[in-house]
Write a protein that binds this DNA or RNA. Sequence first.
DNA 1: TTCTTTTTTTCGGAGCCCGAAATAAAGGCT
DNA 2: AGCCTTTATTTCGGGCTCCGAAAAAAAGAA
Lengths: 413, 413
Amino acid sequence: MTVGVRHDDLRKRNRAMVIAAVRRGTQPSRTEIANATGLSHSTISTISSDLMEEGILALAKPAEPGVLKRGRPQVALDLNPQAATVVSIVLSLNTLSVTLNDYNGAAILQDLSRPPTLTLSRQALVGTVIDAVALALERRPASSGPVLRMTFTVQGITDSGARRLLWSPITPHSDVAFADALEARFDVPVTVENDCNMISVALRARAPERYQDNFFTILLSNGIGMGLMLRGSLFTGAHSSAGEFGHMNHLPDGALCRCGRRGCIEAYAGNYAIYRHARGESEQAQPVADIDDATMVAMAAAARRGPGPEREAFQRAGEAIGYGLGSLFALFDPAPVAIVGLGTSAFDVFEPTMREAIARTAGGQHGTAISFDLELDEMPLIREGSARHALNVIDTQIFANSVSAGATRKEVV
Amino acid sequence: MTVGVRHDDLRKRNRAMVIAAVRRGTQPSRTEIANATGLSHSTISTISSDLMEEGILALAKPAEPGVLKRGRPQVALDLNPQAATVVSIVLSLNTLSVTLNDYNGAAILQDLSRPPTLTLSRQALVGTVIDAVALALERRPASSGPVLRMTFTVQGITDSGARRLLWSPITPHSDVAFADALEARFDVPVTVENDCNMISVALRARAPERYQDNFFTILLSNGIGMGLMLRGSLFTGAHSSAGEFGHMNHLPDGALCRCGRRGCIEAYAGNYAIYRHARGESEQAQPVADIDDATMVAMAAAARRGPGPEREAFQRAGEAIGYGLGSLFALFDPAPVAIVGLGTSAFDVFEPTMREAIARTAGGQHGTAISFDLELDEMPLIREGSARHALNVIDTQIFANSVSAGATRKEVV
DNA sequence: TTCTTTTTTTCGGAGCCCGAAATAAAGGCT
DNA sequence: AGCCTTTATTTCGGGCTCCGAAAAAAAGAA
C-alpha cells in the first residue's frame, strides 16, 4: 500500500519542485516559478528565500538589461554551483572516465584512463576505479562544493538495487559490488547504473519537449543496449536493470549470440555480428570480443559503395532492429527512438531495411511518422546523464528536506 | 512539469488512502488503518468519521465475537454499499453483458444478451448497448445508491483517452465513440477500456500479494490479448491501449495474421491459427472469424490423445507464445504471468514447447522459476475488473474530495 | 517628482497533521 | 459487584504550511 502523506512531505515536495523549476535551466524568477507550479507567490517566496539562505539557490547574474519593461524587474534565480559536487564514473571497454560536476551541472574536472578491463582481476578492476576517483577528488579545486553523490555507470546488467554490476561484456567477472566498494572508501552514496539508462536521462534533460514520458534509447555498439523510459521514469526490472532489447528473439534458432543463445537481435545487429557476416563467416561462428571503430567505419563505407557482403550484413542488422522495434511499438505504441553510438555512422545503410521491417509489423501502421534521432558519440551523453542522475537524487532526496527550518526553530526554543 | 502540491491535496490523498485501506476487504479498524498508512490515530479518526458522516464508510457488522482479547475491542469499518452504484458493460463477440455493482463491489444485477455484433450497423450497435444499459438501470432495486460511473469494456484497441473503440474484431466498424454516446444518454461519466486491462485490474484486486507491481495478463481466445501492469499501474500507450502482444513478430514473413500482416504471434497462437494448422490448411489461408469453444476443446482433446496435426498446431502455438514471453522477459525481467481464456484448457498440450521456447531466450536464465496462473473463464474477471476500475475512480477522484467539510464550514459562516 | 506597473515580501487566517491527554469499552481480578 | 488493566478511539493544543490580501520595493512613464 502507498504510505500516508505526512504534513511535512508537503514542503519537501514543493521545495523539490522549486529546485526542479530552477534546474530546468531558464533562470526563472519567483513569479515564473509560481506560475509554473501553481503555488502562490507567497509560498514560492518563502521556499526560495529558504533555499538561498541554505546556499542551494543563488541570484543569477543580472544578465542582459535587454527588454525594458515597466514595473519592478524580475529577479532571475539560478542554482548555486558550489552547493554540491557529484562524481560520474563511466566504465566501458578498456576505458575509465571520471568526471566531477558542480551543482549546476557544469563539468569541473575530467579524467580519462585506459585500463585493460578484460584482463584485470576483480580486485584490480575495483582498485583501478577507486584510485581514479581518489585522484580526481584530490585534484578538484578548493572552491568546489561538498561531494554528495556518485554515479557509477557501466555497460551491462546491473541489479535492481543499483548496487552491483551483475554482468558486463567488459569484464569476465560477474556480480561486482562497485557501490559498496566505493562507499566504503569515500563515504559518499553511490549507485551503479546502466549506460543506456543514463543516456536516456541525458536526453530527457537535453530535450524534454521531445523526450517526454515514453521513449526508447538504443545503443548500437558491439552489443545492443536499451533504455526504456516509461511514463516519465526509467524502467528497471524486479531483479536487474532489464531492457535487454538486444536479447529479444529475432529468429528462433538463428545466429549465435554473445550470450550463448541463438537468434537474439544482437546476433544480427551487434558489431561482431555485422563483422562476422561481412567476412562470410558462419552465423554460428564464435563472436569476437571487440571490433575497433575504424573497422566498423570501413565496413560501412564498403556497404555504401555497392552490393556485397558488407551491405548485406548491414541490411540484416537493420532488419533485426526493425522487427525488434516493431515489437516494441506493438507493446508501447510508437514513441520517439534515439539511436546512439558508433552504429549510427552506418544508419543510412541499414535504415531502408529497418523501416521495411517496421512496416511489416504492428508499428507499421504509423508508417513514416516514426522518426529517429541519431547521436554518434555516446560517451558525452553517458557522462551527462550520470551527472544529471546524481543531481536529481540530491535535489529530490537531500536538498528537498527542509532541515534548516526545523533546526532554526529548535534553537529558538 | 509536475504541478505543485496544494494544501488541500493532502487531505484528499489521505482520504483516498483510508478508503483504499477499507476497500482492501479486510474490514479494518481505525487502529489497523493507522498502522497501515503510517498516519496518526487522530488523523484517521477525523477522516473516518467524516467519511461515515458522508455515507461512504459504515460500521461493519459486529461479526464473530470469536477471539476475546483484553481492552476495548476494535470497531471494524466497511464500505457503505449504498454509497454508489457502478455499471459495467462488457461487449464481446455476439455477447453483451451489463452488470450493476454496489459500492462494496457486490453485483446487484446482471443482464446478458446476444446481439449479432458482426452484422449490426454502427448506430444499431451503439443503440443496442444503450438499450441494454437503460433496461438494467430501470430494473435496479430502489435501495441502490446513485450511479456514479460506468465502464465500457471491449475486446480490441481503445484510444488512450478511454473514449473510443478504435478497432475490434467483434465489429467491422472502427473508431466508435461509445463513451460520448453513453454519457449523452445517461449523464454519467464513462470510460472505454480494453478487456485484458480489466482482467489485470481484477487479478490485482483478487491477489495483490501475487500480482503486485509488474505482471502480464495474456488472454488466449480467437485473438491474443494482453494487459501490461508496470510499476503498479496499467500501461497504456500514447495513442491507444497498446499491449498488442499478439502482434509482436514471431517469424518474419510467417503465417498470415488476422491483422493482414505476417508472422505475428497471433497467427500461430490464436484459435483461428490453431484451427487452420490442425486442418492442414496453408499458413497463408484467410483466418476464419470465430471458432466455437467446442471445436477448440475437441482439438485439444485430439492433441492430447497422440501425435497428429492437432498436437502439432498446439505445439506451434506454444512456441510462438514462448518466444513472445521470452522477449517480454528480456525487456521487463521475469514477472508473474496470468493466462486467461479458453486457450488455457489446452495448456498442458502447449506448455512443454512454450517453456522450451522461453528457455531459448533471455528469460530462460530464470528457468523453472517462472510460473503461470491459469483461469479458464475470462468473463467473470472482465466484469469484476470493470466494476473495480469504476470503483477505483470513484474512490480516488470523487469520494476523496472533502466537499462536505468546506460546505459545512461555509454554512457556519 | 509623482504616478503606474510589476515583482516580491509580509501578515493574518484557515486547514491539516501530530502527540499527549482524555475518554470509552472491554476483560481480569479480588 | 466493583475496581484495575488493557486497548481503541476521540479530543485538544500546538506547529507547519499554504493562501489571499495588503504592503513594500523597484523599476519606467508622465
